[in-house]
Amino acid sequence: MDDSVPAGSEVIRRYLRELQNISSDLRVAVVANTKSGTEKGVDYAAHSIDTEFFSEGEIEEILYAIRSLGIYADLYLDEDKFIMDVITGRFKSKAKKFNLVYTTAQNGVGPGRKSLIPAFCNLHRISVTGSNPYVVSLCRHKYHYNKILAALGLSVAGSWLYSETSGWAGASPPREGMKVIVKPTYESASIGITETSIVEYSRDLDSQIKSLSSLFQQPVTVQQFIEGFEVEVPVFCHRNYLSFFPVGIQLDGNPLLGEKILTYDRVYNDSYEFYKYEGPAAETVISTAVDAAKILGITAIGRIDFRITEGGDSYITDVSTNPHLTTFSSCSFLFSQLSLRHADLLGTWLALSASSAGILGL
């Protein structure tokens, strides 16, 4: 860790020092899916779920970062193998004084899949990184968390829910002529998102929205589209919630996205860049992101995403309880701007999770 850490990140250094005190007694079991090492379960015909899977290089980055902290780490490439090892006792045979399961696994389709390992670990009293199973599932339902945050006064992009079986939820669809973006409700990493996802709503579009609901076998969230900038705000969630600065998304070197978005193809191929957003809405989105993380009960590290108009009005568009912690991620970019290493990001994730599990007294 670099000793010349800028002012404001001293708390991160403290987390890392506390983690070092137990590093030799800590085992981290990483449960993850990789593009080449995991046999996919049910998948979508249009956009594969493996956009959420690690590449071989990314999983090696994660393991190297954890091990460079002096922590023992082993790897499970699918949920079934991990579950069987726990049931048969093989997992326990490798246990150390302190044990954490770091899971990003989400094989298959539909709601709740990212909560499987956290829920299973709770059943077997195994400490797991990140948020609890309920919060993980809640924050995978774009419409539900949007309405919770809106009801508590946070600025969110207006959202409506459409189901193939029951049509529009609530009183009415969006108003005619409103520019909206149409998204599968349970997905992340831009699954189901293309340039044609942004449309001006009319009743004539209901058949297309119904087709998308059928294609991805889930309700569709239709969200007010905000032209302008897009930022991601990592939030470090513990007793004192902490956020440093918004990380902007730029496409082809341009931070002002206008009508452009992160499509499935761009996300799959990492065809975008990060920058430090210092526009007029910076302080507002930091404060709003912290409020959102508190309201939703996110633990360890979360990420709240916004679209910001050229005039500085900001709106929450997405939430993540388990943001990517690879070297190519907004969280890693933030740490690099604080003169901290990628390994320090993983260490912070583990320290905050260990504290929530009662292993560390942060």
Rank of each mutant, 00 (worst) to 15 (best):
D3E: 15
A7D: 13
V11D: 12
N21M: 12
D25N: 13
V30Y: 01
F54W: 14
S55A: 13
E61G: 07
E61P: 05
A73D: 01
E79S: 12
D80F: 11
G89E: 12
L100Y: 09
T104P: 04
A105V: 14
V109P: 03
G112F: 08
L123T: 14
H124C: 10
I126G: 08
V128F: 13
V135K: 05
V136Q: 09
Y143L: 10
Y145Q: 04
K147N: 13
L149V: 02
A151P: 00
A157M: 05
W160H: 03
I181D: 08
T185G: 04
E187A: 05
S188Q: 09
A189I: 06
S190T: 08
T194E: 14
S207D: 03
I209H: 07
V220C: 02
T221M: 15
E232G: 13
F236N: 09
F236G: 04
C237Q: 05
H238S: 14
Y241F: 14
Q250G: 00
Q250S: 12
L251N: 01
L256H: 13
G258K: 03
E259D: 05
L262T: 01
N269T: 03
S271W: 01
Y272F: 15
E273K: 03
F274G: 00
A282N: 12
I286V: 15
I286E: 14
I301K: 05
I304W: 03
F306V: 00
T317L: 13
T317M: 12
T321N: 04
N322H: 02
S330R: 08
S330D: 10
C331E: 12
F333L: 11
L334Q: 12
L350N: 04
